[in-house]
Design a protein around this nucleic acid. Sequence first.
DNA 1: TCATTCAGTAAACAACTGTTTGCCGACTCG
DNA 2: CGAGTCGGCAAACAGTTGTTTACTGAATGA
Lengths: 212, 212
Amino acid sequence: MSHSENGVGVRQAQKLQSRRALLDAGLHLLEQQNLSGLGVREVTRAAGMSPAGFYRHFSGMSELGVTLVEESLASLHGMIRGAFAEQRGQQDPEALIDSAVEVVAAHVREHRAHVRFLARERHGGVREVREAIGAELRRFADEVAGALAAQPVSRGWSAEEVRMLAELYVDLLVTSATAFLEAGPEGEREVARTARTRLRLISVGRRHWHEG
Amino acid sequence: MSHSENGVGVRQAQKLQSRRALLDAGLHLLEQQNLSGLGVREVTRAAGMSPAGFYRHFSGMSELGVTLVEESLASLHGMIRGAFAEQRGQQDPEALIDSAVEVVAAHVREHRAHVRFLARERHGGVREVREAIGAELRRFADEVAGALAAQPVSRGWSAEEVRMLAELYVDLLVTSATAFLEAGPEGEREVARTARTRLRLISVGRRHWHEG
DNA sequence: TCATTCAGTAAACAACTGTTTGCCGACTCG
DNA sequence: CGAGTCGGCAAACAGTTGTTTACTGAATGA
């Protein structure tokens, strides 16, 4: 019995390592540049590989970009699920807001380059990447909508109203994430404070929405 | 007396026309591309000019970018002032929200390329342009803060609370603008509807903020 | 009228680009 | 062991790029 069935041969591992090197090099270069201006040679040079080698892993730059999108949002998805798990255990909306903001802050702290990439390419010049980010964000809103619908505060809200609200929350969190990014570590507390205030303002509006 | 004192000689006019051609060509190319990937030769070719001519007008690409930023926000500024003028004449917050959203919608409708440029480069790879957009947006928030402070609803709000609120409004309007952009003309009504709902939700939250 | 200014040009610079080709050599697997 | 797979490389392709140079010729203004 060889390692053919678990897919972790020496060969496979080396290929994956090269692929990782390309992705890391690309991510690094994209901190000061846009994807639409990133070159194949530039990336391979930074990854210590010959230009031709790039095409063993990606058909072109936009494919590398889409891969980075998936990678960037995968970890966030996990953290969000964690935050929702906390919600089930406790009902205080203040605490939920605090933990949501903290989740975002932590994610930006630990995945700076990925988040910067998302912010930069969300409206960037490469359509495939833009669409990938948009689709992922829409799925994200789906999850939030599901969680909101389960809250007792949502009694009397239609499905589309809840969906709207979810999109608002997502947009606010995305905005907060880019604010964390621009503020840097020293301004983190301040950004978190305004993010919490914004969310609380929505909370209040939500409670008094159906009153006339 | 020649035209030396009003600056509208034939020479000046021709130069301005060329400059305009460069800016228009750039703006057009930037609809499918990022500034960090835009080339001097590319722009001059599209503008019907020799590459060297570019440097008679701009020191480099980022200077052209900053010029486009100023240009892009100048018209919006005017429209915003108009919307605020309407406010003074009438107190219904619903109507103010409606007119604010309509101002944004109209601006996107009439300046698609400029708005797309702003959305694309707001977090783009060219620092000078990013900073120019950020500064302009902050001035925008100043104006909104001033207008909010004048509203009777703001009684009991501190200056920083009002400022926070103004930034929230600006972020929401910017988000709405990019939503208009992505939706296209046919989805405009829908985007306007959710934009209004968001603003109303904030309105409600604002009224009930200081209640415990 | 006539010297001056200056927007725009053509040409040259060295360096860069994406992509394809054929090849090598280490891994894979019966 | 031996045939086959395949990730990575060097080289060549036919362009492209930003920027500087010295120039031309029309607009300028005394």
